[in-house]
Design a protein around this nucleic acid. Structure first.
Lengths: 193, 193
DNA sequence: TGCGGTATGTTTGCAGTGCTCACATGAGAG
DNA sequence: CTCTCATGTGAGCACTGCAAACATACCGCA
């Protein structure tokens, strides 16, 4: 048995435990530090260093996981979108993710990402591709790269601005509506393409 | 004489000195802490607390200043834009600001902004209004709120994604081109409105 | 002119952090 | 059964934000 919790000197699966513990802390809004994670995992303050070079490494691993989760959320509305309205739902999902898991979202996008972390860059690329596919499905004849970047930018910006309270928004429903009308306002004219 | 640098016990204008010192550090990419700022200003580690309640307060003041600077950059192309291409230049200025002063930009938008800091919310509102005016000048008959938010979101998202290295971009010129084509791709169809 | 109050700076000290290094343990290869 | 090495522990350093208690000198007021 090499799964999670053994009670001897050696933990058995500390790396995974640290990741899930840290993720919980992010989810719960607790401010998070290597030491705090270790404490919560019931392990000495320096134990994490056996599994992560430094704090950034842990954060990168969490960010990678977050990007994978985001990608799943985006794909979940399985079918390729056919209309601008359906494409907008991808945007809604993106913004919703940011608002549901703000601390994680900030980890994923907030720092410089000068990453040699392959997991992470690959996960980011996957998100990009998901968005590109969706855009391509709706605007088959358009300049794919430009529209994809524009759309990603818009959605990401809306998420960030809402996260930071720069845009008025009472309820999550409100936010979703705002995202939809942004898509409508901007992409409506091309709907027929 | 109550201006900046006196050499006695009392500094004379510490608050301002701290702000400019901190701003320099942000500009220079030095990592910044209350203590480091105090050190660089040649003052004891806790002197700043006479002028700022805590670290967040200093950051908020810097963020407010940053928002004012950003607003100036946006207005600088004085004339109201008349075409999508001219509107795009506002976007270019926005993104350029973010890339030129990344640490400041992160301060301005990176944190939760649960601010009672009037300066700051007002400065943010001013930016919003500048953008709204510009959009209104180009699309006089459109749904102003929706397009403004969409545009702000797009520009802000592009800035953030570039800052975090999520979008390929070799040179600043490259980035500017990307911003322009995003505007073109998305707003082109409405240009005649 | 002198005096006291108060805004502004200093010192000391605490708890928390990231990280390094020397040491302990025990699981698994031989 | 033993030895090795991955994995855990502990003590310790430099740094941080922040809270008192204390020092100084600028100010209005007598």
């Amino acid at each position: 048995m090499s799964t999670s919790t053994k009670d001897g000197y050696h933990h058995g699966d500390l790396r995974a435990t640290l990741l899930t513990t840290a993720m919980e802390m992010l989810e719960q809004g607790e401010q998070f530090s290597l030491r705090a994670v270790a404490r919560k995992a019931g392990v000495s303050p320096t134990a994490p260093y056996r599994h992560f070079a430094d704090r950034d490494a842990l954060e990168s691993a969490l960010a990678a996981q977050g990007l994978r989760d985001l990608n799943e959320d985006l794909i979940q509305g399985d079918a390729m979108p056919a209309t601008v309205a359906e494409l907008a739902e991808l945007g809604v999902a993106y913004v919703d993710f940011a608002l549901r898991r703000p601390a994680l979202f900030r980890l994923m996008f907030g720092n410089a990402c000068d990453d040699t972390n392959d997991d992470r860059v690959q996960a980011a690329a996957a998100v990009h591709e998901t968005l590109a596919r969706a855009v391509a499905a709706v605007f088959p004849e358009a300049d794919l790269a430009a529209i994809t970047i524009a759309g990603w930018g818009m959605v990401h910006g809306l998420a960030s601005l809402h996260l930071d309270g720069k845009l008025a928004s009472d309820s999550p429903d409100d936010v979703a509506k705002q995202v939809r009308s942004s898509f409508a306002a901007v992409f409506a004219a091309r709907a027929g393409e």
